[in-house]
């Protein structure tokens, strides 16, 4: 069994304004899993993600990467940021280069000096994200979906072990959102750990291996999707809705235990048709 990639031990973060955004969080992120970080607006999701990348330093508590404590010196941070890639919520705040090509090469050229290898790597990711046609465009003149793809390519080209995405599907149309998730899924198949913040309960229910529920900076519950989403009270406390599948299943059988919740649409439809058949 794989160990934990990152562990937070009683980590707190207080903004310089005095706002306590993360309060005494204990959390372990297992390697190779798809993890969904959920919470209402202002729950502290973005802040937590920035803590993981070493951008913010916890005001109290510790963070461990593969069992070793984070050290906030220059060299250690560089290593850490190569291993933990973060895709920001607003693409515009991430795009710095005047062309897509340079944007994708940006992280790589900060890390490595072998230009030939960097060029090969950039070409590979441009192909992978279908960006070859746009490579000379200015990133700011693209649509939201294209911008998101550029951001993903520029972070993934650094080949991080943990990919952190802050609301990857925000302001994307359904098709592009699905595409983004498929791309991430493919990365997970290659052994990358994914951590994604979202408020889309349906997406998280269908997709995640592990769900972390945040409320006002502290962890409300951690567990598999059916455990977390089966608990309607905790979910309501976190300010989130139940996933549609859970709602429908509970409509059909009000006292369904969490372990018996359907995993996907097909399972629910099966159950309903079976019930229909026996009723008839």
């Amino acid at each position: 069994m794989a160990g934990n990639l990152i562990e937070l031990k009683a980590a707190s973060y207080r903004y310089p304004t005095g706002k306590q955004a993360i309060a005494e969080v204990d959390l372990a992120l297992p390697e190779g899993k798809k993890i969904a970080l959920m919470g209402a607006n202002g729950a502290g999701k973005s802040t937590l993600l920035l803590l993981l990348n070493g951008i913010y330093k916890p005001t109290k508590g510790e963070l461990h990467y593969r069992g070793k404590q984070y050290r906030y010196n220059r060299k250690a941070l560089r290593e850490l940021r190569q291993k933990v890639g973060i895709v920001f919520q607003e693409s515009d705040n991430q795009l710095v280069a005047p062309s897509v090509y340079e944007e994708v090469a940006f992280g790589l050229s900060n890390l490595y000096s072998d230009k030939k290898w960097i060029r090969e790597q950039v070409e590979k990711y441009l192909d992978y994200f279908d960006l070859q046609e746009l490579k000379n465009h200015s990133p700011h003149q693209l649509s939201s979906g294209q911008k998101k793809r550029v951001c993903l390519a520029s972070v993934l080209s650094m080949e991080p072990e943990l990919i952190v995405c802050d609301e990857p599907a925000s302001n994307l149309d359904p098709q592009n959102a699905r595409l983004t998730f498929e791309l991430l899924e493919a990365q997970n198949k290659q052994g990358k750990t994914l951590l994604i913040s979202t408020h889309d309960v349906n997406q998280a229910y269908a997709w995640a291996d592990l769900v972390v529920l945040l409320k006002e900076g502290s962890v409300l519950s951690v567990g598999s999707p059916i455990e977390v989403f089966g608990d309607a009270d905790t979910l309501a406390e976190a300010g989130l809705e139940q996933p549609l599948l859970v709602k429908l299943a509970r409509m059909h059988q009000p006292h369904l235990a969490a372990e018996e919740l359907p995993g996907n649409e097909a399972e629910l439809v099966n159950r309903l048709t079976k019930k229909l058949c026996t009723d008839l």
């Binding site: 890639g85 705040n93 090509y101 790589l108 900060n110 490579k135 000379n136």
Partner: peptide, 25 residues
């Protein structure tokens, strides 16, 4: 604010002091 967020994003990708990019060959 914008400048600050941009700086954060650049830091997250290990940006150094210099504004240097690798251009297409």
């Amino acid at each position: 604010q914008n400048a600050k967020q941009l700086e954060t994003a650049m830091q997250a990708r290990c940006a150094g002091e210099n504004y240097c990019f690798l251009q297409e060959e």
